[in-house]
Amino acid sequence: MSGAAISTRGLVHIYRSEGHDVAALSGVDLSVRSGEMIGLLGPSGAGKSTLLTLLGGLFRPSAGKIYIGDHELTALTVKELDRLRAREVSLMLQGASRNLLPYLTPRQNVEFAQRAARRDSADLPDVGEVLDRVGLSEYADHHLSGLTPGHLQLAAVAVAIATDPGVVLADEPTSQLDHEARDTVLKVLADISAQQGTTVVLVTHDPQVAAVMPRTITIRDGRIGGEGRAGEEYAVVTADGFVHLPDHALAALPPGTLVRVHDQDGIYQLIPEHEAGGTPGATKEGS
């Protein structure tokens, strides 16, 4: 299956727990092209994993819409969501072991992952081929307890791509791995994206991982706070006009600072109130 585009519009998700409402996402607009590979960045609790699970159809958002390919997730029935997860969207949980049945070999785990799709008579890749893609053919029939963490993560990747899905959503796939293993996993995911056209959304904390991503999205406080492309960081203007200041600008303009937005021939400046008429403390340029 070729990759599927991802798009969210005004995505809001609120967790309700023991009388407290916590807004995990507060209007996320995101577009990922088919076959694209992006990294989701952000501090803990920013809403990365929530966004990932919403994209995986595990939760229904409190508000907003999610499009995966031709499907609007919020409109799908439970059965249709099951079918979507069986074939088109694959979610890799954080920690290799959470993606694998501990008593099965890598081959059997891939077979297990294909079972629901096979019931729908889907055209599925050969298990050996899947394992070959991740470079785990040699260990196809090994017991999981005999594999290294890197191999286990590769096995988890193999399980994630077992049905040749259009979208792979990977939550911290390189955590707890050494550099070599991390690079291997990233390469495998990049190869899959490049060769199969699979859309890959990868959540990471690791700056080195983020650095090799062609595109990164930074989530802050439940909003998209920035985007990086080819090493360049951008602030993102959201649909409601919100712009998240970069850290260095935030240091100069602490919360509560009143600013005046000054348009000077297409260059927008933020002028703090106490400096009104003086030299701008910080500027934000946009087009």
């Binding site: 995986g56 595990l58 439970v78 059965k79 099951d82 079918r83 979507l84 997860r85 069986a86 074939r87 694959s90 979610l91 949980l93 959470r98 993606n99 694998l100 049945l101 297990f112 992952a113 294909q114 079972r115 629901a116 799709a117 019931r119 399980v159 077992a162 049905t163």
Partner: peptide, 15 residues
């Protein structure tokens, strides 16, 4: 967790 994995890979409640 195993049931969760199955559901994650598209298995229905009945499955």
């Amino acid at each position: 967790p195993e049931v969760a994995l199955a559901r994650l890979r598209g298995r229905s409640s009945a499955g």
